[in-house]
Design a protein around this nucleic acid. Sequence first.
DNA 1: TGCGATGCTACGCGTTACGTAGTAACGGGA
DNA 2: TCCCGTTACTACGTAACGCGTAGCATCGCA
Lengths: 104, 104
Amino acid sequence: MSGLSQLGRFSEPALLILVSLADGAKHGYAMQDDIAALTDERPGPGTLYGAIRRLEEHGYIESLPEQDRRKPYRLTDIGRAALQTELQRMRTVASTGLRRLAVA
Amino acid sequence: MSGLSQLGRFSEPALLILVSLADGAKHGYAMQDDIAALTDERPGPGTLYGAIRRLEEHGYIESLPEQDRRKPYRLTDIGRAALQTELQRMRTVASTGLRRLAVA
DNA sequence: TGCGATGCTACGCGTTACGTAGTAACGGGA
DNA sequence: TCCCGTTACTACGTAACGCGTAGCATCGCA
């Protein structure tokens, strides 16, 4: 754990899952790898599969037919739209914050 | 409530407070205004003052002498550094996600 | 045949988000 | 002068989430 992460609720697993699915369908373990590459923090199974379940319940992602022992998921249209909105907001906040830090 | 916010834990009050303080010391109510302008979501007092307390406990912000009925806070050096790190990570994730959405 | 990596489920604890209610002081308008 | 809305914060409770741990099964490889 480092930085603001100790405060909890900063890793935003759900959003990272959506980002992970943005370049194609993946199953859980592959998402973990992708997220680890993106953020240097590998979410544990409790975090990951909990968030996946909630995202599916909300209709942001949907499961594809299971193959092998893998349950792949992909973004729904709703999920894609929500992700775009959220990422734009995120980028705005990040830019604003960094600008403020630079000026001050 | 709109978009991913219904999933909870997406508004990240603590980070928004830090961004809010990045352009100068503010008291709680002023942070609410600033955050509302930034995100179109005004955090309620439970959210705001809870997050402020935790940030102070962790040494990311510190309180200035109370004046009138206002308790102003400002970023500490630690808070400033943590915020910068976090915002950079955030911008990277946002950019990556948006790029992926554009390609797909 | 053992062992690590893969892939997921189940469970529980601590913490957080957030709504609601309550307090108090101030200023402006009727 | 009496409301009433705004400012500013405190206190409290509940639901939800993050995250760690444990467990189970399969696969490949040495």
